[in-house]
Amino acid sequence: MLRIQGVDRSFGDRKVLDDVTFTVERGRLTGFVGGNGAGKTTTMRIILGVLAADRGEVTLDGHPLQPEDRVDFGYMPEERGLYPKMRVAEQIAYLGRLHGLERGVAMDRARDLLDRLGLAERADDPLENLSLGNQQRAQIAAALVHEPRVLVLDEPFSGLDPLAVDVVVGVLAEYAARGVPVLFSSHQLDLVERLCDDLVIIAGGRIAAAGAREELRSAVGSTRYELTTTGDVGWVREVPGVEVVEFDGGYALFEADEAVAHGVLADAVRRAPVKSFTPVRPTLGEIFREVVADAVPEDAR
Protein backbone atom coordinates (compact mmCIF):
# COMPACT_ATOMS: atom_id res chain seq x y z
CA MET A 1 0.00 0.00 0.00
CA LEU A 2 1.34 3.36 -1.04
CA ARG A 3 0.46 6.13 1.37
CA ILE A 4 0.86 9.85 0.96
CA GLN A 5 0.73 11.44 4.39
CA GLY A 6 0.30 15.14 5.17
CA VAL A 7 2.30 16.41 2.23
CA ASP A 8 2.76 20.17 1.82
CA ARG A 9 4.57 21.84 -1.00
CA SER A 10 5.01 25.47 -1.99
CA PHE A 11 6.61 27.11 -5.00
CA GLY A 12 7.76 30.47 -3.74
CA ASP A 13 4.78 32.02 -1.96
CA ARG A 14 2.27 29.82 -3.70
CA LYS A 15 1.14 26.80 -1.76
CA VAL A 16 0.30 24.11 -4.28
CA LEU A 17 -0.22 21.16 -1.93
CA ASP A 18 -1.80 21.50 1.46
CA ASP A 19 -1.85 18.50 3.78
CA VAL A 20 -2.37 16.00 0.96
CA THR A 21 -3.19 12.58 2.39
CA PHE A 22 -4.48 9.50 0.61
CA THR A 23 -3.63 5.86 -0.01
CA VAL A 24 -3.22 3.73 -3.09
CA GLU A 25 -4.21 0.18 -2.15
CA ARG A 26 -2.54 -2.90 -3.58
CA GLY A 27 -4.60 -4.69 -6.16
CA ARG A 28 -6.83 -1.72 -6.84
CA LEU A 29 -6.83 0.87 -9.58
CA THR A 30 -6.88 4.30 -8.05
CA GLY A 31 -7.98 7.23 -10.18
CA PHE A 32 -6.60 10.67 -9.40
CA VAL A 33 -8.79 13.49 -10.66
CA GLY A 34 -8.70 17.23 -10.31
CA GLY A 35 -8.86 20.38 -12.37
CA ASN A 36 -5.92 21.98 -14.11
CA GLY A 37 -3.43 23.23 -11.57
CA ALA A 38 -5.09 21.33 -8.73
CA GLY A 39 -1.80 19.67 -7.78
CA LYS A 40 -1.94 16.24 -9.44
CA THR A 41 1.39 16.47 -11.22
CA THR A 42 3.16 17.94 -8.20
CA THR A 43 1.81 15.12 -6.04
CA MET A 44 3.01 12.50 -8.50
CA ARG A 45 6.42 14.10 -8.76
CA ILE A 46 6.73 14.00 -4.99
CA ILE A 47 5.75 10.32 -4.94
CA LEU A 48 8.51 9.66 -7.47
CA GLY A 49 11.02 11.72 -5.52
CA VAL A 50 11.59 14.00 -8.46
CA LEU A 51 10.42 16.84 -6.22
CA ALA A 52 10.88 17.07 -2.47
CA ALA A 53 7.95 17.67 -0.13
CA ASP A 54 8.17 20.61 2.27
CA ARG A 55 6.46 18.50 4.88
CA GLY A 56 4.89 15.06 5.11
CA GLU A 57 6.06 11.74 3.73
CA VAL A 58 5.35 8.98 1.27
CA THR A 59 5.42 5.43 2.59
CA LEU A 60 5.23 2.04 0.92
CA ASP A 61 3.80 -0.68 3.15
CA GLY A 62 4.53 1.51 6.15
CA HIS A 63 8.17 2.28 5.32
CA PRO A 64 9.24 5.75 4.23
CA LEU A 65 10.31 5.60 0.59
CA GLN A 66 14.03 5.48 -0.11
CA PRO A 67 15.63 6.20 -3.49
CA GLU A 68 16.34 2.45 -3.76
CA ASP A 69 12.60 1.68 -3.55
CA ARG A 70 11.83 3.96 -6.42
CA VAL A 71 13.89 1.88 -8.81
CA ASP A 72 10.83 -0.41 -8.78
CA PHE A 73 8.43 2.37 -9.69
CA GLY A 74 7.00 2.82 -13.14
CA TYR A 75 6.40 6.45 -13.94
CA MET A 76 4.82 8.21 -16.85
CA PRO A 77 5.04 11.97 -16.48
CA GLU A 78 2.41 14.27 -17.88
CA GLU A 79 5.01 16.04 -19.96
CA ARG A 80 5.85 13.17 -22.25
CA GLY A 81 9.44 12.73 -23.20
CA LEU A 82 11.89 10.31 -24.72
CA TYR A 83 14.99 10.93 -26.83
CA PRO A 84 13.66 12.05 -30.23
CA LYS A 85 16.63 10.79 -32.22
CA MET A 86 17.21 7.51 -30.40
CA ARG A 87 15.79 4.24 -31.72
CA VAL A 88 12.66 3.19 -29.89
CA ALA A 89 13.69 -0.27 -28.67
CA GLU A 90 17.12 0.98 -27.75
CA GLN A 91 15.89 3.74 -25.52
CA ILE A 92 13.29 1.57 -23.82
CA ALA A 93 16.07 -0.94 -23.13
CA TYR A 94 18.33 1.89 -21.91
CA LEU A 95 15.68 2.95 -19.40
CA GLY A 96 15.34 -0.70 -18.35
CA ARG A 97 19.07 -0.86 -17.70
CA LEU A 98 18.93 2.29 -15.60
CA HIS A 99 16.36 0.43 -13.54
CA GLY A 100 18.84 -2.38 -12.99
CA LEU A 101 18.09 -4.83 -15.80
CA GLU A 102 20.92 -6.62 -17.56
CA ARG A 103 21.59 -5.40 -21.08
CA GLY A 104 20.19 -8.51 -22.82
CA VAL A 105 17.17 -8.83 -20.55
CA ALA A 106 16.37 -5.15 -21.00
CA MET A 107 16.41 -5.47 -24.79
CA ASP A 108 14.22 -8.61 -24.73
CA ARG A 109 11.67 -6.93 -22.48
CA ALA A 110 11.66 -3.81 -24.59
CA ARG A 111 10.94 -5.82 -27.74
CA ASP A 112 8.23 -7.89 -26.03
CA LEU A 113 6.49 -4.79 -24.79
CA LEU A 114 6.69 -2.95 -28.09
CA ASP A 115 5.29 -6.05 -29.75
CA ARG A 116 2.39 -6.12 -27.34
CA LEU A 117 1.76 -2.42 -27.85
CA GLY A 118 1.71 -2.91 -31.61
CA LEU A 119 5.01 -1.17 -32.26
CA ALA A 120 7.14 -4.18 -33.22
CA GLU A 121 7.70 -2.91 -36.75
CA ARG A 122 8.81 0.51 -35.58
CA ALA A 123 11.12 -0.76 -32.85
CA ASP A 124 14.29 0.21 -34.70
CA ASP A 125 13.13 3.57 -36.00
CA PRO A 126 14.13 6.80 -34.32
CA LEU A 127 11.32 7.92 -32.04
CA GLU A 128 10.81 11.18 -33.90
CA ASN A 129 9.75 9.26 -37.03
CA LEU A 130 6.72 7.81 -35.20
CA SER A 131 3.27 9.37 -35.15
CA LEU A 132 2.24 11.08 -31.92
CA GLY A 133 -0.05 8.21 -30.97
CA ASN A 134 2.77 5.72 -31.46
CA GLN A 135 5.17 7.88 -29.48
CA GLN A 136 2.60 7.72 -26.73
CA ARG A 137 2.65 3.92 -26.85
CA ALA A 138 6.44 3.99 -26.65
CA GLN A 139 6.08 6.17 -23.59
CA ILE A 140 3.93 3.53 -21.95
CA ALA A 141 6.54 0.90 -22.77
CA ALA A 142 9.13 3.14 -21.09
CA ALA A 143 7.11 3.13 -17.87
CA LEU A 144 6.64 -0.65 -17.88
CA VAL A 145 9.92 -2.09 -19.16
CA HIS A 146 11.26 -2.99 -15.71
CA GLU A 147 8.01 -4.61 -14.52
CA PRO A 148 7.39 -2.00 -11.85
CA ARG A 149 6.04 -2.81 -8.41
CA VAL A 150 4.29 0.53 -8.16
CA LEU A 151 2.75 2.35 -11.10
CA VAL A 152 2.24 6.11 -11.18
CA LEU A 153 0.87 7.36 -14.48
CA ASP A 154 0.03 10.97 -15.21
CA GLU A 155 -2.64 11.13 -17.91
CA PRO A 156 -1.76 7.76 -19.48
CA PHE A 157 -4.68 7.89 -21.90
CA SER A 158 -4.29 11.33 -23.39
CA GLY A 159 -3.45 11.15 -27.05
CA LEU A 160 -4.27 7.45 -27.41
CA ASP A 161 -6.66 6.05 -29.96
CA PRO A 162 -9.46 3.81 -28.63
CA LEU A 163 -7.55 0.62 -29.50
CA ALA A 164 -4.49 1.75 -27.60
CA VAL A 165 -6.69 2.85 -24.70
CA ASP A 166 -7.99 -0.73 -24.51
CA VAL A 167 -4.46 -2.14 -24.53
CA VAL A 168 -3.38 0.20 -21.76
CA VAL A 169 -6.51 -0.47 -19.73
CA GLY A 170 -5.73 -4.18 -20.04
CA VAL A 171 -2.17 -3.65 -18.88
CA LEU A 172 -3.21 -1.55 -15.88
CA ALA A 173 -5.81 -4.10 -14.83
CA GLU A 174 -3.22 -6.85 -15.14
CA TYR A 175 -0.81 -4.95 -12.91
CA ALA A 176 -3.52 -4.26 -10.34
CA ALA A 177 -4.50 -7.95 -10.38
CA ARG A 178 -0.88 -8.80 -9.55
CA GLY A 179 -1.16 -6.67 -6.44
CA VAL A 180 0.65 -3.63 -7.76
CA PRO A 181 -0.63 -0.30 -6.46
CA VAL A 182 -1.68 1.67 -9.53
CA LEU A 183 -2.31 5.40 -9.40
CA PHE A 184 -3.29 7.24 -12.54
CA SER A 185 -4.69 10.64 -13.32
CA SER A 186 -7.04 11.48 -16.15
CA HIS A 187 -9.31 14.18 -17.38
CA GLN A 188 -11.50 11.59 -19.07
CA LEU A 189 -13.90 11.13 -16.17
CA ASP A 190 -16.03 8.52 -17.94
CA LEU A 191 -12.94 6.38 -18.39
CA VAL A 192 -11.90 6.82 -14.78
CA GLU A 193 -15.41 5.94 -13.69
CA ARG A 194 -15.38 2.77 -15.74
CA LEU A 195 -11.92 1.67 -14.59
CA CYS A 196 -11.25 2.76 -11.06
CA ASP A 197 -11.87 0.95 -7.85
CA ASP A 198 -10.82 3.92 -5.76
CA LEU A 199 -10.92 7.63 -6.35
CA VAL A 200 -8.92 10.56 -5.10
CA ILE A 201 -10.24 14.01 -5.92
CA ILE A 202 -7.94 16.95 -5.47
CA ALA A 203 -8.97 20.59 -5.69
CA GLY A 204 -6.88 23.67 -4.97
CA GLY A 205 -4.05 21.58 -3.56
CA ARG A 206 -6.24 19.79 -1.03
CA ILE A 207 -7.79 16.36 -1.12
CA ALA A 208 -11.49 17.05 -1.55
CA ALA A 209 -12.57 13.42 -1.38
CA ALA A 210 -10.92 10.03 -1.36
CA GLY A 211 -12.17 6.47 -1.06
CA ALA A 212 -13.84 3.60 -2.86
CA ARG A 213 -15.79 4.76 -5.87
CA GLU A 214 -19.14 3.33 -4.74
CA GLU A 215 -18.80 4.78 -1.24
CA LEU A 216 -18.05 8.17 -2.69
CA ARG A 217 -21.07 7.91 -4.91
CA SER A 218 -23.41 7.31 -2.02
CA ALA A 219 -21.63 9.67 0.33
CA VAL A 220 -21.29 12.62 -1.96
CA GLY A 221 -24.51 14.32 -3.02
CA SER A 222 -28.00 13.08 -2.39
CA THR A 223 -29.19 10.13 -4.38
CA ARG A 224 -31.75 10.99 -7.03
CA TYR A 225 -34.71 8.92 -8.14
CA GLU A 226 -36.32 8.58 -11.50
CA LEU A 227 -40.06 7.81 -11.58
CA THR A 228 -42.07 7.05 -14.71
CA THR A 229 -45.78 6.23 -14.59
CA THR A 230 -48.62 6.16 -17.08
CA GLY A 231 -50.39 9.00 -15.27
CA ASP A 232 -49.36 12.55 -14.37
CA VAL A 233 -46.83 12.82 -11.55
CA GLY A 234 -47.25 16.54 -10.84
CA TRP A 235 -48.36 15.67 -7.29
CA VAL A 236 -44.78 14.64 -6.41
CA ARG A 237 -43.84 18.31 -6.16
CA GLU A 238 -46.25 18.68 -3.23
CA VAL A 239 -44.68 15.85 -1.15
CA PRO A 240 -42.73 17.24 1.81
CA GLY A 241 -38.97 16.48 1.65
CA VAL A 242 -38.91 16.06 -2.10
CA GLU A 243 -37.11 18.34 -4.50
CA VAL A 244 -38.03 17.78 -8.12
CA VAL A 245 -35.16 18.33 -10.54
CA GLU A 246 -36.97 17.52 -13.77
CA PHE A 247 -40.63 16.99 -14.52
CA ASP A 248 -42.48 16.08 -17.70
CA GLY A 249 -46.01 14.61 -17.51
CA GLY A 250 -45.49 11.04 -16.34
CA TYR A 251 -41.72 11.52 -15.69
CA ALA A 252 -40.06 13.01 -12.62
CA LEU A 253 -36.46 13.16 -11.46
CA PHE A 254 -36.28 14.11 -7.81
CA GLU A 255 -33.97 14.27 -4.83
CA ALA A 256 -35.16 12.89 -1.52
CA ASP A 257 -33.87 10.68 1.23
CA GLU A 258 -34.55 6.99 1.02
CA ALA A 259 -37.65 6.79 3.28
CA VAL A 260 -39.38 9.69 1.54
CA ALA A 261 -38.57 8.19 -1.85
CA HIS A 262 -40.17 4.88 -0.88
CA GLY A 263 -43.28 6.77 0.33
CA VAL A 264 -43.41 8.45 -3.08
CA LEU A 265 -43.20 5.05 -4.78
CA ALA A 266 -46.04 3.61 -2.64
CA ASP A 267 -48.17 6.63 -3.48
CA ALA A 268 -47.40 6.39 -7.16
CA VAL A 269 -48.40 2.73 -7.29
CA ARG A 270 -51.81 3.62 -5.82
CA ARG A 271 -52.38 6.45 -8.32
CA ALA A 272 -51.33 4.85 -11.61
CA PRO A 273 -49.35 1.87 -13.00
CA VAL A 274 -45.63 2.54 -12.43
CA LYS A 275 -43.41 1.85 -15.43
CA SER A 276 -40.12 2.37 -13.67
CA PHE A 277 -38.58 3.59 -10.46
CA THR A 278 -34.79 3.87 -10.33
CA PRO A 279 -32.33 5.34 -7.89
CA VAL A 280 -29.81 7.35 -9.89
CA ARG A 281 -26.31 7.38 -8.51
CA PRO A 282 -24.40 10.55 -9.33
CA THR A 283 -21.87 10.19 -12.14
CA LEU A 284 -18.23 10.82 -11.43
CA GLY A 285 -18.58 14.09 -13.29
CA GLU A 286 -21.33 15.18 -10.93
CA ILE A 287 -19.42 14.08 -7.86
CA PHE A 288 -16.39 15.88 -9.16
CA ARG A 289 -18.26 19.11 -9.77
CA GLU A 290 -19.93 18.98 -6.40
CA VAL A 291 -16.76 18.18 -4.48
CA VAL A 292 -14.69 20.70 -6.34
CA ALA A 293 -17.38 23.38 -5.96
CA ASP A 294 -17.28 22.79 -2.22
CA ALA A 295 -13.52 22.88 -2.02
CA VAL A 296 -12.58 25.70 -4.32
CA PRO A 297 -14.33 28.72 -2.74
CA GLU A 298 -12.16 28.37 0.35
CA ASP A 299 -9.13 28.68 -1.86
CA ALA A 300 -10.56 31.29 -4.18
CA ARG A 301 -7.88 33.83 -4.86
Binding site: R45, L48, G49, V50, R70, V71, F73, Y75, M76, P77, E79, R80, G81, L82, Y83, P84, L95, L98, H99, A142, A143
Partner: peptide
Protein backbone atom coordinates in the same frame (compact mmCIF):
# COMPACT_ATOMS: atom_id res chain seq x y z
CA UNK B 1 17.53 18.27 -25.28
CA UNK B 2 16.77 16.13 -22.25
CA UNK B 3 15.06 19.10 -20.66
CA UNK B 4 13.20 20.10 -23.78
CA UNK B 5 12.02 16.57 -24.56
CA UNK B 6 11.11 16.17 -20.86
CA UNK B 7 12.76 12.80 -20.63
CA UNK B 8 14.73 14.30 -17.79
CA UNK B 9 11.74 13.73 -15.54
CA UNK B 10 11.75 10.00 -16.24
CA UNK B 11 15.51 9.90 -15.81
CA UNK B 12 15.45 11.77 -12.51
CA UNK B 13 12.87 9.34 -11.17
CA UNK B 14 15.57 6.66 -11.50
Amino acid sequence: QEKQSRIVEILLAT
